[in-house]
């Protein structure tokens, strides 16, 4: 493979990493509070509120049931409004974030629901406020499980980023389509697939490792 091609691969790899990292960060930033609200507003939880819970739940479900490709096209006006353009690596971050945030929210919700209600009750009996219960009990106790969930989200974002790339966003997916598929460069095709596989493996192993470190229930 020519040095030119290697440079191209590296550049695309960088773009993929950028898209995935930025959209993961933003998705967690949006999904975390969303997941917390979805949890605590449930019936019998610390801040029950049926209205907020069902409205947020409906929005999250609607976003999650829209296929990524359709979502991406549908929100082009929004993307243009935010980044000023609908094509490019940065523009791809908007649909990636919007599709990942509700996923992260549900993941966080299910992690938080695993916490023993007795522990929450014990904190209440000590006079903890709802905010303290969220920051000092729910999130730390669920962190090892949240890490695994976010790992899952990163991996699906790697997949979606390839799709977004094919629609003009750059990255490894874009490279594989333009060179591997359209110009019959089998070597490029194989190289991108290998990099994607390696990336997923590394992310999963790292996630497993961090989660195990945080999990104090199995020592």
């Amino acid at each position: 493979m020519s040095p030119e091609m290697i440079n191209l691969l590296l550049k695309s790899f960088g773009e993929t990493c950028y898209m995935v990292a930025a959209s993961t960060l933003l998705a967690v930033l949006v999904g975390l509070p969303l997941g917390v609200i979805l949890t605590v507003t449930r019936r019998g939880h610390i801040l029950p509120n049926a209205a907020i819970n069902s409205i947020l739940g409906a929005i999250v479900n609607a976003t999650r049931s829209t296929p990524f490709i359709i979502l991406m096209v549908a929100i082009i006006p929004v993307t243009r409004l935010i980044v000023g353009s609908s094509i490019g690596t940065t523009a791809a971050i908007v649909p990636l974030t919007i599709s990942a945030a509700p996923f992260v929210a549900r993941i966080i919700e299910s992690s938080l629901l695993e916490i023993d209600p007795g522990v929450i009750e014990a904190s209440q009996s000590m006079g903890a406020s709802p905010m303290q219960i969220i920051t000092k009990v729910l999130l730390p106790e669920a962190m090892h499980s949240i890490v695994l969930g976010v790992t899952l989200a990163i991996i699906s974002l790697i997949g979606y980023s390839a799709m977004a790339g094919a629609l003009g966003g750059g990255g490894l997916g874009d490279l594989a389509i333009r060179y591997g598929y359209q110009r019959f460069r089998m070597d490029i095709m194989i190289a991108t697939v290998v990099i994607l596989i390696a990336q997923v493996q590394i992310v999963q192993s790292l996630g497993n490792y961090i989660s195990a470190k945080l999990n104090k229930t199995k020592l």
Binding site: D116, S125, E141, K216
Partner: peptide
């Protein structure tokens, strides 16, 4: 203060 049958300690602490 309150103590419980199943202790209800924080596992991460």
């Amino acid at each position: 203060g309150m103590i419980f049958q199943h202790f209800n300690l924080l596992a991460s602490r």
